[in-house]
Design a protein around this nucleic acid. Structure first.
Lengths: 360, 360
DNA sequence: ATTTTTACTGTGCACGTGCACGGCAAATTT
DNA sequence: AAATTTGCCGTGCACGTGCACAGTAAAAAT
């Protein structure tokens, strides 16, 4: 295969130890010998054997994972699966994960989980920065302890973040606008439905709305975009009341934009779909089982896929490249914005399942 | 991290060699000792360290790659990049690639490349089965030599194929139908443009057409679907003549479906786009530079992305899992059918570039 | 002139697994 | 009873790299 340090040593007429010092910049080598060795390295395109290297180092890299508990919100099961599935292969390379789950609806538990993570002195923290305010100071704390942070799903503008892995939310809103635009109905009212809780904390949700408005503006669509904030997505009564309000006036409705992954809640717990009868375009997020079911029933027209498993996988892989392969990793890793319809949803589901199996 | 064979040996009161014989089913171990060892393996959930294992085996796995030369058709550059980029990481694991490129338009060179591949006695062959007739007997020949085959891009129905990695072409045609359907124009003529050369050999192109027709039928769209076979996609004169023919009669044109990746050829070398002025939906395949440019100029409305780099990457990864990790791999690995529009094309391009960097 | 420092370079063990070889009793054959 | 075979087990080297330690000259200091 490739040339080894031993062979380099023989060619250079020195011992392997000397070659090793040159390769790892550990000094203590005369200029001429160093040059001679580097020449050989160049000529024979020496690449270090990562297997042997990791085997020799044998010092574990611990990653602290700070994510919402999937028991509070199914969405977070996917990233977690992506992360844990890849774990088994990583242990060979000396990477281990430590989970610190928190309650999505309790900022206290968020802070606690984060502090717990820091105090375990990990090599890095893998974070879903749900609570905006609390996050910034916590990130600084990690920074002071020299612990790099990788964020997934929600984008945080901080230079102390090693990398963000997730979707470009603005662009995703723009796509939503485009999809509403494809429908050549004369109606021009678009209702964007947000969860009250999100509106406060999650900037990425706000960006989705901005994107929608931006598309509207740039393409002179003349859509009338109505923001609706629903306090409790799990309360059927409240949801039904919102639906009644929505459909009360003579219908000018062109589409509904669910900004989070809980479209299924409103559609399944109200008579929304029955009363609309495909007269409006419905767009939601994420391939949760219930959303997929509604997509196949044509009660949802488009799902925007955020590839949450891939977010988990890719974040771990990035840290792997950073720590093991010493590669530089991109500060922003925007995942593709997949447009999922009834006809291609199965292909995405298959990909997801296979990905979780194949992961190296 | 995990328990090692040495530790198992100590716990079982035997030497590491004995543990090794049990783990690798090499016999020569008394039943009681074997049971004792397996018990410990169970209890401590022993997992072999793949790094050390590969390092010790040190026997290369050679993969022969039989693909069209990208110089004949740009499309094939992408799979090749996916394959070669991952190569560097694979060498550590003892996998090496041997390229056998052939001329896309010359079946002789295809047969030659394949035979060349077989005679190099590789562990497996990675194949783009372009020429249908020739392929079947060649596959049998490989089978007789005990060389497994993985196919990409074009699906071959043969049980002698270890795995197919590519798109579900039928489903992809269905998606095209859906996209034409979104446009609520009254026009109902859809023109499918195929390259004469493809029509003869490539079953996956035929399947795309079948998919389009199937959508039309199942959703009672009443589209009039017209097949056009263009002999030479690289001859501007012929292309222009086809366009003139196409736009001669009073326009009932709803959309144009380019079944291969060469939409850019007809659009750039004729006045098609100027005369249509967005009155018809244009669908093409693949994110070639020129196609992307046309998408951004709104001269193409949708591109169906086949993720060719991923095809290359995933096929090598599958072989990796098969040979190194001894995993079973799926016989059909359908990639997702990505719907690419002006607004999300950049996200796909970014993903592509990043993928080629990140590959483990 | 002897010791100490400096500037290098070589040696050897470790990481975990694969595998060839050798050893050593007990069972079997001559 | 001696020789051979069989079944079972341990030892030791290899893979390629990291790293601690020892070693060896020449240069500098005493």
């Amino acid at each position: 295969m490739g040339i080894t340090t031993k062979e380099i040593a023989k060619l250079a007429g020195v011992s392997r130890g000397t070659v090793d010092r040159v390769l790892n910049n550990r000094g203590q080598v005369s200029a001429e010998v160093k040059a001679r060795i580097l020449k050989i390295v160049e000529d024979f395109k020496y690449k270090k054997n990562v297997l042997a290297s990791r085997l020799a180092i044998n010092e574990p890299v611990k990653i602290a994972v700070v994510l919402p508990d999937p028991n509070n919100d199914v969405f977070w099961q996917a990233p977690l699966e992506g992360i844990t599935k890849v774990q088994s292969s990583m242990t060979d390379y000396g990477m281990s994960l430590e989970l610190n789950l928190f309650n999505l609806f309790d900022s206290k538990s968020y802070v606690f989980a984060f502090q717990q993570a820091i105090s375990s002195r990990p090599s890095a923290i893998l974070l879903a920065p749900i609570f905006l305010k609390e996050t910034l100071s916590l990130i600084q704390m990690a920074e002071q302890n020299g612990i790099p942070i990788v964020c997934i799903n929600s984008e945080i503008d901080s230079k102390d973040v090693l990398s963000f892995i997730g979707q470009d939310s603005l662009q995703s809103g723009i796509i939503a606008g485009k999809l509403f635009h494809l429908n050549s109905s004369v109606n021009n009212q678009i209702v964007a439905i947000t969860q009250g809780h999100d509106a406060k904390n999650a900037i990425h949700i706000k960006k989705k709305l901005d994107g929608l408005k931006q598309y509207n503006f740039e393409n002179q669509c003349d859509f009338e975009i109505v923001d609706i904030q629903v306090k409790d997505f799990f309360n059927p009564g409240i949801l039904q009341k919102e639906v009644d309000l929505l459909l009360s006036n003579p219908s000018n409705l062109r589409g509904i934009f669910f900004t989070n992954s809980r479209a299924y809640n409103m559609i399944n717990q109200t008579d929304l779909a029955d009363r609309l009868l495909n007269s409006a375009t419905i767009i939601g997020y994420d391939l949760l089982d219930q959303n997929v079911e509604l997509l196949k029933q044509q009660k949802i027209d488009f799902l925007l896929h955020q590839k949450p498993e891939l977010q988990g996988y890719q974040s771990v892989l990035s840290l792997f490249n950073h720590f093991i392969h010493k590669k530089t990793i991109d500060q922003k890793q925007y995942l593709p914005i997949d447009i999922v319809v009834k006809e291609n949803v199965d292909s995405y589901l298959q990909e997801r399942d296979r990905m979780l199996e194949m992961m190296l």
